[in-house]
């Protein structure tokens, strides 16, 4: 019985001490695990950058935003100069904030990103509103210049832009350039000396005969009705807009024709001619001549032997294979050969 009891006790002791050991082991292991976790956490922290944290971002962003808002709110009722300066500062700050957001994009969540973008948008709108209110836009307008000579630009007038009254429509700055405008039923001529390498502008001409000798740099024609316009070699492009019932003869590098109807073009073009919004435009090779034409070709730098007059691109007819209905080639028997005035 005793022995049995002892035995039982022995087992009991053995069991107790075993349990104790296990507990101890568990305790130790737990501690090790905790230490390991702590170590890993530290290692992780040392690797990650403080700036790449959501909280860091949102707190910095919010502080910046608040300071910009304060700047903007200080604008109300302030002096014009002060407002300009403050707005400038606010704009710079907003841009910096935008850059900060862009830099942080990689580690932000969708929500944070969207929230920050909205905030920025709001800042921009309110600064635009304040600008609109405090500093209304100046309307752009060309300054009037003396029309004494239509040859070359008079020296720049020094009138500040502010003197332009608010309600001036864009006045055609015709007088500055070499050219003719607003004329009816007249014959107009420019000599090679007048034109030499100038930009020539012809506008609002009706029933006129125009002869341009020499080599212009560019030629612009706008609002031409029932005219005959002959021009020497143009070294770059010719631009035609709103022209009707006219006859033109031009050598050039490029021809761009817009909104033109029923017009015959005797053309020498070294690259391409195009038409856009045109009807009834017809083409033939350039045939006008005058004594110094050859020299003018040399001045313009155009190749007299390369003429692509019949290769016309219609920007409103992109079907390959089918010819555009908007332009034609003038039949040989109908081509004009006599260009006398």
């Amino acid at each position: 019985m005793d022995a049995k009891a002892e035995c039982t006790q022995g087992i009991g002791v053995a069991g107790e001490s075993g349990a104790f050991k296990i507990q101890e082991r568990l305790q130790k292991r737990h501690q090790e695990r905790a230490e390991e976790a702590e170590r890993r956490k530290e290692a992780k922290e040392s690797r990650s950058v403080a700036e790449e944290k959501g909280e860091y971002f949102s707190s910095t962003f919010d502080t910046e935003r608040a300071s910009i808002e304060e700047l903007l709110s200080s604008c109300t009722g302030a002096d014009r100069a002060v407002v300009t300066q403050t707005l400038e500062e606010a704009t710079v700050k907003t841009l910096q904030l935008q850059k900060f957001l862009n830099d942080s994009m990689l580690f932000l969540t969708q929500y944070e990103l969207r929230r920050a973008q909205d905030a920025l948008q709001k800042l921009q709108t309110s600064s635009a509103e304040i600008r609109e209110e405090a500093l209304p836009k100046k309307k752009f307008a060309f300054r009037a210049r003396s029309k004494a000579t239509d040859k070359v630009s008079a020296p720049e007038s020094d009138t500040p832009a502010a003197s332009v009254s608010t309600k001036v429509a864009v006045a055609p700055a015709v007088s500055v350039q070499c050219g003719f405008s607003n004329m009816n039923n007249v014959c107009l001529t420019k000599t090679a000396e007048e034109i030499h390498k100038q930009d020539v502008l012809l506008t609002h001409l009706t029933n006129c005969k125009v002869r341009l000798f020499g080599s212009p740099s560019t030629l612009h024609m706008k609002h031409i009705d029932s005219c005959e316009i002959l021009c020497g070699p143009v070294s770059s492009s010719v631009f035609i807009d709103h022209c009707r019932d006219s006859t033109l003869a031009i050598p050039c590098q490029q021809l761009r024709t817009h909104n033109t109807q029923d017009t015959r073009v005797y053309l020498h073009v070294t690259s391409r001619a195009i038409i856009e919004d045109c009807h009834g435009v017809s083409f033939a090779p350039f045939s006008w001549s005058y004594p110094t034409l050859k020299e003018d070709f040399i001045v313009s730098g155009l190749d007299q032997n390369r003429n692509n007059w019949s290769q016309v691109d219609d920007f409103h007819w992109l079907a390959a294979g089918t010819p555009s209905p908007n332009w034609t080639v003038i039949p040989e028997e109908d081509r004009k050969t006599n260009w006398e005035l």
């Binding site: 490029q254 070294t270 690259s271 391409r272 195009i274 730098g301 691109d313 920007f315």
Partner: peptide, 8 residues
């Protein structure tokens, strides 16, 4: 650049 045509 001398042979450039209007861009279609």
């Amino acid at each position: 650049v001398s042979t450039i045509s209007p861009t279609l």
